[in-house]
Design a protein around this nucleic acid. Structure first.
Length: 541
RNA sequence: GCCCACGUAGCUCAGCAGGAUAGAGCAACAGUUUCCUAAACUGUAGGUCACAGGUUCGAAUCCUGUCGUGGGCACCA
């Protein structure tokens, strides 16, 4: 429709010279009194033409040759907007289109043939995934879904490191629990992992090895903990319907010499130097503020080196789009890493770094501080048990990733009617219910009389449905999952209003069958949208 | 001190590729059911879009500064 209007204006260039080579922008006005589409074209031309915007608008309208069965009327409004009112008949065809395309409706293949990798979660295996990790997990998976929706072939990847100090502390935590189980009164250090899960792992080891447990190599405790915790993490992700394609172990970068490769390249390019027994990365030469250490005087690399090497593997795996997702606590690390990758000749334009702000957990009106080490946390699994997977997912994507998210456990756990997810799902369930009823009445779906859908509620619903594809593409290209949620909330609201205003059973047969077609179209769009968000579309509630 | 994000109704937040009278949910108040699920719908009330400048025909939206909140500024990741 926008294309049609743009053509109208381009064709008018024959009469009005200044419309040549112009690309008019159309928007849907917030206020319905302002028509179906609106353009600010006249106002943008005031300077060039030195005329009042309303005069220009009236000149343009005079030059437009349009079909009155499509455009009902055109008006000048406010400071100089040109508002287009589309004849009612032109919106109902969307229903046929939706029924036709069904699961494919609203999808584009704009990026067909392109590949993407989305790296997310990437928590080191020191404990169960907590509510704090939840936002990252859900946003990452949803972004991956979104990219798939526009044609990308997407790999979901989890990057972890099982070497560093934290992992040694983890292994030692298990070992000390074993000692305690075997009767030693050794004290458990404050800075070790306090969680119950450590005791469980220790108990399993003691059960298998008895008194010999303490003769085991230190590595065994760490490896066992890592294995059990990872199994747990994968299970948790599964509970959220998240399936990783790959778990990438930082260690492989060492084993395959990737770390040395980077180090050598830096050296040969003169991008590193030695000082105080450490190797420094010359970031100042690349325009950053200060140089940073990449290899400590102990010989161990800092995170920067493996991170750079890791990103290079992403480039070498030939992804067209590389998405990294992490919390704001890591926001300072990525510029160094990108600078390193860029310095080695890779095009960082294809890297999209998404940073989400923190989640503040509220309970009883207070902020809950969480720490994996102190075992003071709420796990995602606990949350799912309380409120279900859909609520958890929805809470994490319903807000812009740039804002701090307040997760009020009391509300999340409370009566479901405070949760907006149910509002969406109820719209879907309601439609299913209607269809069960109309089926019993012998009413069938028919697209023969869609022109009967003329009430306010019906027209608004039709217009909304027509915006689905464009809105999806916009949210996806901007990496804004919350916009999909907003769209679906609007659609659900319009449907609920339609439900209250327009009855199906009891209406004239032609009208009833057209309304069934509309309802099914809404259901299809709702289902497609919920699918992208990874939410279920229940038939009954 | 420096860097990033945020500041919109009592609360939680949309809106921000500039656009017309700034929206929703919750909370408050008043209504709607012999009728396809009331997990719904309708209405009332509630605003100095943190503050101050600037750009613009036009600013919640862009720019600068101030204040406030969160996160970061390691030879931790």
């Amino acid at each position: 429709m926008k294309e049609y209007l743009a053509d109208l204006i381009r064709n008018a260039a024959a009469e009005l010279e200044y419309l040549k080579d112009i690309n008019p922008v159309f928007s849907v006005p917030n206020n319905e009194d302002h028509g179906d589409f609106s353009t600010n074209l006249a106002m943008t031309l005031t300077k060039k033409l030195k005329k009042s915007p309303r005069d220009i608008a009236s000149e343009i309208i005079g030059a437009l040759k349009y079909d009155e069965s499509v455009v009902e009327k055109i008006e000048i409004a406010g400071p100089g907007f040109i508002n287009f009112y589309i004849a009612a008949d032109n919106f109902s065809s969307i229903v046929t289109d939706i029924l036709d395309k069904d699961k494919e409706f609203g999808r584009t293949y704009k990026y067909k043939g392109k590949t993407a990798i989305v790296e997310f979660v990437s928590a080191n295996p020191t404990g169960p995934l907590t509510v704090g990790h939840g936002r990252n997990a859900v946003i990452g998976d949803t972004v991956a879904n979104m990219l798939e929706w526009v044609g990308y072939d997407v790999d979901r990847e989890y990057y972890f490191n099982n070497a560093g100090r934290q992992m040694r502390v983890l292994g030692n935590s298990v070992k000390i629990r074993c000692e305690q189980l075997l009767g030693s009164d050794v004290e458990f250090p404050d800075d070790h992992y306090q969680g119950e899960y450590i005791k469980d792992i220790a108990a399993a080891l003691v059960k298998e090895h008895g008194e010999d447990t303490l003769k085991l190599d230190d590595k065994v405790f760490k490896d066992r903990a890592e294995k059990e915790i990872f199994a747990d993490i994968e299970k948790t992700l599964g509970n959220l319907n998240i399936k990783m394609k790959n778990f990438f172990n930082e260690n492989t970068l060492y084993e395959e010499g990737k770390i040395d490769d980077v180090l050598n390249k830096f050296k040969s390019k003169g991008l590193s130097y030695e000082k105080d027994g450490a190797v420094w990365f010359k970031l100042t030469e690349l325009g950053n503020e200060m140089d940073k250490v990449i290899v400590k005087s102990t010989g161990e690399p800092t995170y920067r080196l493996p991170d750079i090497a890791y990103h290079i593997t992403k480039f070498n795996r030939n992804y067209d789009l590389i998405v990294d997702l992490f919390g704001s606590d890591h926001s300072a690390t990525y510029p160094d890493v990108l600078a390193g990758v860029k310095a080695l000749g890779y095009n960082t334009d294809q890297v999209k770094v998404l940073i989400h702000q923190f989640v503040t957990i509220m309970q009883g009106g207070d902020v809950v501080k969480m720490s994996t080490r102190k075992a003071n946390f709420i796990t995602i699994d606990e949350l799912i048990d309380e409120v279900g997977k859909d609520v958890v997912r929805y809470f994490f994507i319903m807000r812009s990733i740039n804002t701090h998210l307040n997760f009020d456990l009391d509300i999340a756990k409370k009566q479901s009617d405070e949760n907006p997810v149910f509002y969406l799902q109820y719209a879907h369930a309601r439609i299913c219910s209607i269809l069960r009823m109309t089926d019993g009445e012998g009413l069938k779906l028919s697209t023969d009389n869609l022109n009967l859908l003329t009430t306010d509620a019906e027209q608004r619903l039709l217009k909304k449905l027509g915006q689905f594809g464009e809105e999806m593409l916009l949210s996806i290209e901007n990496f804004e999952p919350q916009k999909i949620a907003n769209f679906l909330e609007d659609l659900a609201a319009l449907f609920h209003k339609f439900y209250n205003d327009c009855r199906i059973i009891g209406s004239d047969k032609d009208l009833a069958e057209a309304r069934i077609a509309l309802a099914v179209a809404v259901r299809t769009v709702m289902r497609n949208g919920l699918g992208i968000l990874g939410l279920s579309a229940p038939e009954k509630m």
